[in-house]
Design a protein around this nucleic acid. Structure first.
Length: 475
RNA sequence: GGGACUGUGGGGUAGCUUGGUCCAUCCUUCGGGGUUCGGGACUCCGAGACGCCAGUUCAAAUCUGGCCAGUCCCA
């Protein structure tokens, strides 16, 4: 039926085939980079968003939603920012038949939509901290090749924007975001690296940027999120001030935290296998799929038992899909394996009689689930499945890094590399040229390997201020 | 922004060089019937396409031009 390209030798083709075959997206809309969220893909996205919402709200952030259009004059206020996004902005210049007096930008991100309003909302130190987030669509005119979930022109975007009293409390917020992302990624079973971007590669307008990167084969990496400290870079131009306890007017220090549907692409890319997608249980549209196996004589009993099992699990809060279609059982197995269902329960004559279903998780491990204790048994199986999935991802993650000691080694681009780096921009660019990619920066908390203390810069051989940095080829 | 290439049912393809043998091949998919049902069933009947617009020609899926969409490479 569906034959996927080989994942090992032909990763990109495998990815493109699997997201369509698993019915996560339909890219036949006819406009580059604008893809359709299918029913199944939408359900996965909704699960993913629920995790983001849960974790960010646990850190005291509250939801808002700002308009999608930003007036040109506001958009242009922060100079670095506008320069960084200039080439990627869609503009609305007409209303009906007439030209607009002030052109409207379709948000590529929402700083410039939100910050003029922050200036109205923030008056006193009592208004701080101000932590808000929104999940909205943003638009970026990508000129490179677009790929479902990984690089699109209409982006499903999570963005937190905060105002803090000073640089130190803003730094605390950054740390809190890093911790929140650690919990999100753990739920998804996604190992990643937090990396402080070099000066020349930080977010336009930021004081510094910390990004989350994952390896996706060879030297290739994928950025799946970022946290930025803006200091007063935006609050200055937008006039976001508060009166402190002494009666002095001060500018707020700001931070942002951005994630997108790339996370869904990363989950597909990292966990998937030759049979298709593998969803961690928290993301799967259906965390349990029940396949009845009827025969002419046992049909009524088997379907009745499957129904009962589905009902028990649903009442326990599971997202159950009872696949009672007319296809043969084997066809259904392939169907749900392709779509990444974490746990399959089979109910045939034997199971109906014994009231114990056979279970197979998406990693192929078999077990039994008694009807009477189904809710508890399934919860345990899914927890074990998530653990094993995360474990598997972690080994692959570690195996994808290597230490490079020379620029020639980098050029092979077989791994994502740890390199000694003196911190100079010149050496940074030499490293980037060598790997034909990017110097992602210095890891923020912990390395994937234990290479000891770096002794020399890979580019200039100097030993002053050398630290381990990560070099790769961003997708 | 510059260049190269591609476009045939829902998906994948054959046919294109050398116009006619094409009311378009094969696989899959979809609808209906029957026999089946513990890892991708079989069978019978049926459905579905030459990206769009012009041009050349007795004749265009095939040649030419423009447009649209997509892919890849370079800036």
């Amino acid at each position: 039926m569906v034959d996927l390209p080989d994942r090992r030798t032909n990763f990109v083709d495998w990815y493109l085939a699997v997201v369509e075959a698993a019915d996560l997206t339909d890219k036949r809309y006819g406009v580059k980079g604008l893809n359709i969220w299918t029913r199944y893909g939408f359900l996965a996205r909704r699960q993913l968003d629920a995790v983001l919402v849960r974790e960010i709200e646990a850190t005291g952030s509250e939801p808002v939603e700002f308009p999608a259009l930003i007036p040109e004059n506001e958009f242009a206020k922060e100079k670095e920012h506008i320069k960084g996004f200039d080439a990627q902005v869609y503009w609305v210049t007409k209303g009906g038949l007439s030209e607009l007096d002030v052109a409207l930008a379709l948000r590529p991100t929402s700083e410039t939509a939100i910050y003029p309003v922050f200036a109205l909302w923030v008056r006193s130190h009592r208004d701080l901290p101000l932590n808000i987030y929104q999940i909205v669509n943003t638009f970026r005119y990508e000129t490179k090749t677009t790929r479902p979930f990984l690089r699109v022109r209409e982006i499903h975007f999570f963005e937190e924007h905060t105002c803090q009293t000073n640089e130190a409390t803003a730094t605390d917020r950054v740390r809190s975001n890093l911790a929140a992302f650690r919990r999100m990624a753990e739920t998804f079973g996604l190992p990643y690296l937090s990396i402080r971007r070099p000066e020349w590669d930080k977010f336009p307008g930021a004081f510094y940027s910390i990004a989350f990167d994952i390896p996706v084969g060879g030297a290739r990496t994928l950025q799946i999120g970022s946290v930025h400290h803006y200091r007063e870079n935006f609050s200055g131009p937008y006039g976001i001030r508060y009166e402190d306890t002494e009666g002095t007017q001060r500018l707020v220090h700001q931070t942002t935290f951005g994630l997108s549907e790339r996370l869904l692409g990363a989950i597909v890319a990292v966990h998937g296998d030759a049979k298709g997608v593998i969803f961690p249980s928290s993301i799967a549209p259906y965390d349990v799929v029940i396949v009845p196996i009827p025969s002419a004589e046992t049909r009524v009993a088997v379907l009745g038992a499957a129904d009962e099992l589905a009902d028990r699990l649903r009442r326990a809060g599971r997202r159950v899909r009872l696949d009672a279609g007319e296809e043969r059982p084997g066809a259904k197995y392939y169907h749900w394996e392709l779509r990444g269902a974490p746990l399959r329960l089979e109910v045939g004559r034997r199971e109906a009689e014994s009231r114990v279903a056979s279970s197979v998780d998406r990693l192929g491990r078999k077990g039994r689930v008694a009807f009477d204790t189904a809710a508890v048994d399934v919860t345990a199986r899914l927890a074990e499945f998530d653990r094993a999935l995360g474990e598997r991802a972690r080994s692959a993650f570690q195996a994808s890094f290597a230490v490079a000691r020379s620029l020639e080694e980098l050029a092979k681009a077989e791994h994502v590399y740890l390199v000694g780096w003196c911190g100079s921009e010149e050496c940074g660019h030499r490293i980037e040229t060598a790997i034909d990619g990017a110097l992602l920066g210095v890891p923020e908390d912990g390395l994937p390997l234990d290479p000891g203390t770096p002794t020399a810069c890979i580019a200039c051989a100097g030993s002053d201020g050398v630290r381990w940095a990560v070099a790769g080829q961003p997708l």
